[in-house]
């Protein structure tokens, strides 16, 4: 008993250190959960949220009203999975490459250059894409396809190109940010391992495979689990701005967030919007639990909880 007390006391400074973060979490992540109630209410502002009558699951119905819903959820989940897998692979590769750059200044320069797109808004990015792909004045049609004697492509009405365009745009913009986390954990690895390995005659490739990757495995798994929590939540701006909300492309560009926006923007229905959020959160939560259970089964140390 006394022993326990002492142990608890030892942690006090850490709790104090964490306090701002905890307060932030409570304000930003826990208090808004009250809004979940709204998803089940028929909002009447004079009665307030709690006083409004219950609506059961009526607010959720519009999410499943159209046949397109399956396509919308498919888009959301598949794009997220693709972004996650490809993004992680590329980010880890990039982090390893950057770590091999010996000149300190050049390393900093590359890092900044890769990060710059992340700081750009999707709206600006959408105009960059437009500058390339516009049908009559675009760079691709006028300066690349024309000199090659190829016919101009109507990019904004051809569905088949968009999964690639969106993936490219997403990678271009987010790669730098994803890379930083892995880069920092690689930089943190002790140089002793690598020295020992090279003394034993290990090649660069062997070092990466046998030392770097196993050591950052924990970071990778944590990042993947965290991202799976957002599996049905899409980057709204990417899917809305880059294709310029063009109806012809919906079957490959419309995700849940875009659907909610298009359906509810005109009548600001708060109850239905919260229903959509609740749906996304619950599915995301389930995904996190499942992935975590799988990870725990194979490698308990890497599991989040």
């Amino acid at each position: 008993m006394p022993k326990r007390k002492i142990r608890w006391k030892n942690y006090i400074p850490f709790y104090i250190m964490a306090l701002p973060g905890i307060i932030y979490m409570i304000c930003n992540n826990y208090m808004p959960m009250f809004g979940i109630v709204l998803a089940f209410k028929k909002l009447d502002v004079t009665k307030g949220i709690l006083g409004s009558p219950w609506a059961g699951f009526k607010n959720f119905e519009f999410l499943f009203k159209t046949k397109a819903t399956i396509g919308i959820i498919r888009n959301t989940v598949l794009y997220n999975l693709l972004f996650l897998l490809l993004g992680t692979a590329l980010a880890v590769a990039l982090a390893i490459l950057l770590n091999e750059v010996k000149s300190k200044n050049m390393g900093k320069l590359y890092q900044s250059l890769i990060l710059i797109p992340y700081l750009m808004s999707w709206v600006i990015a959408s105009y960059l894409v437009y500058a390339f792909l516009a049908q009559d004045i675009g760079i691709v049609n006028n300066s690349i396809l024309k000199p090659l004697g190829k016919e101009a492509v109507s990019w904004y009405s051809e569905k088949k190109y968009w999964p690639y365009i969106l993936t490219f745009a997403y990678m271009w913009k987010n790669m730098g940010y994803m890379m930083i986390i892995y880069y920092s954990s690689i930089v943190g690895l002790s140089a002793d391992y690598f020295e020992a390995a090279s003394l034993d005659g290990a090649t660069k490739w062997q070092q990466i495979r046998m030392i770097t990757l196993p050591l950052i495995k924990g970071t990778i798994i944590t990042m993947v689990i965290l991202n799976l929590g957002r599996i049905v939540t899409s980057d709204f701006s990417l899917f809305y701005q880059i294709p310029k909300n063009n109806g012809a492309l919906y079957s490959v560009t419309q995700t849940l967030d875009v659907y909610v926006y298009n359906a509810l923007m005109k009548n600001s229905d708060f109850a239905m919007s919260s229903a959509a959020s609740v749906f996304q959160s619950i599915v995301g939560f389930i995904f996190v639990l499942i992935t975590n259970a799988i990870v725990r089964k194979y490698n308990e140390e890497s599991a989040l909880f």
């Binding site: 519009f62 063009n246 239905m272």
Partner: peptide, 24 residues
């Protein structure tokens, strides 16, 4: 009919600008 109206609004947004401006 707010549920239907929300779903219809979304479908209409999708198709109107493409059939209505001759792009398809």
């Amino acid at each position: 009919v707010s549920t239907q109206a929300a779903a219809v609004a979304s479908v209409a947004t999708q198709y109107r600008s493409i059939v209505g401006y001759g792009t398809v």
